[in-house]
Design a protein around this nucleic acid. Structure first.
Length: 278
DNA sequence: AACGATCCCTGTTGGC
DNA sequence: TGCCAACAGGGATCGT
C-alpha cells in the first residue's frame, strides 16, 4: 500500500522523466479515477499540451505543477502505482487508468485495480482547497515533539488513529503506523492525552527513523499486485517489517508473538510486551 | 467539535 | 479440489 516512502520513491523516479517535459497526450481509462473534472473532456485539456515545472509531494499526494499554474495531483490510493514506459508499444497493463505521453515519446502509466486512487487537474484555488486540509509532511516538515504533543495531547483517540489522521501529520498509513508505534514502544491504543513528553520524543524519532528506513529500501510491496516502483522493481522494506502482517510471529525485539487487533476498522499489529499501555 | 462507522472496489485468501 | 464469502484499506461522508 503506497504510503509516504512509496509515494516519495515514486516522486523521485518520475521527477527526471517529467521535469521540463511537455505532456503531448493524455488518455483516461475509467472516469472514476477523475476528481473535480468528472469526465475526460474536462480533465484532459487542462493537462494536454502543458509543460511540467516541478514534481512535488505532500503526504501521500503527488503534486505535479505545470507551468500555467495547473497542478496535476495524483493519489495512489491503496492499489495504485505509476509505471514508466520508454516503449509505448508495450501493451497496457490491466487496470491502466491514465496514460501521460511526454514530448520525447515516453509514457507514464497510472495503474490502479481498486480505483481508490485518483487524479485531478487543479487550479490555484482548488489546489489550496485540497492541500489546505492536509497537515504537515511527515518526512520533510515533521512537527517537533512539542508541537506533536500540542496537537495530540488533548485527544482521547488512540495513537494508532492519530498517526493515520492526515490533518496533523501527513503521509503515514496503516503499515508504517504499526511499525512506528513498535519502534517507539508505544501501544496502539494509548490515548493521545496519555502521551507524555518522553513518549512524544520517542514517537517523533520513530516517525523519522521508520520513514527514512522505508525510503532507503524503496518502500514496501506487500504482494506483487500492489505497489511497485515505476521501473517495476518491488520495494525491499517488505522484508524488514517488524510487526505489520507478522501476527503470531515472534517479536524481533523480545520474541513474544505479535498480536493483531482492530483499531478504527484497521488491522493493527503490535507486541504486547514491548508496547505497554501503562 | 470530536469521534466513529460506512462506503467505494477488486484481487487474494481462507474456510468449508 | 473447488467455490464463495470474507478480507484488505485511504479518504469522503454521514451519523452520534
Amino acid at each position: 500500500m503506497p504510503e509516504l516512502p512509496e509515494v516519495e520513491t515514486t516522486r523521485r523516479s518520475i521527477e527526471p522523466i517529467l521535469a521540463g517535459r511537455r505532456i503531448v497526450d493524455v488518455t483516461v481509462g475509467r472516469d472514476r479515477v477523475l476528481r473535480r473534472q468528472p469526465v475526460p473532456e474536462l480533465f484532459v485539456p487542462r493537462v494536454k499540451g502543458n509543460t511540467v515545472a516541478t514534481v512535488g509531494r505532500l503526504g501521500k499526494f503527488l503534486d505535479i505543477c505545470l507551468v500555467d499554474g495547473i497542478s496535476l495531483v495524483i493519489h495512489l490510493g491503496m492499489s495504485g502505482r505509476i509505471e514508466h514506459q520508454t516503449d509505448p508499444a508495450t501493451p497496457l497493463a490491466r487496470h491502466t487508468q491514465v496514460v501521460l505521453t511526454t514530448d520525447i515519446g515516453e509514457e507514464l502509466r497510472f495503474i490502479d485495480p481498486r480505483t481508490f486512487g485518483f487524479v485531478a487537474a487543479l487550479d490555484e484555488d482548488e489546489r489550496h482547497l485540497v492541500f489546505g486540509k492536509i497537515g504537515r509532511d511527515a518526512f520533510t516538515d515533521l512537527p517537533s515533539p512539542e508541537e506533536l504533543g500540542e496537537a495530540w495531547g488533548r485527544s482521547r483517540s488512540p495513537m494508532k488513529a492519530l498517526l493515520l489522521d492526515q490533518r496533523v501529520v501527513a503521509g503515514i498509513g496503516n503499515i508504517y503506523a504499526d511499525e512506528i508505534l513498535h519502534r517507539a514502544r508505544i501501544h496502539p491504543l494509548l490515548r493521545g492525552d496519555q502521551l507524555t513528553p518522553r513518549r512524544g520524543i520517542a514517537i517523533h524519532k520513530a516517525i523519522q527513523d521508520i520513514l527514512a528506513d522505508g525510503l532507503r529500501w524503496g518502500g514496501t510491496s506487500l504482494d506483487d499486485l500492489a505497489y511497485l516502483l515505476p521501473d517495476g522493481r518491488t520495494g525491499e522494506f517488505t522484508e524488514r517489517l517488524a510487526v505489520y502482517g507478522k501476527t503470531d510471529e515472534p517479536c524481533t525485539v523480545c520474541g513474544r508473538p505479535i498480536r493483531q487487533i482492530t483499531v478504527r476498522q484497521r488491522s493493527t499489529h503490535f507486541c504486547n510486551r514491548c508496547q505497554r499501555l501503562r
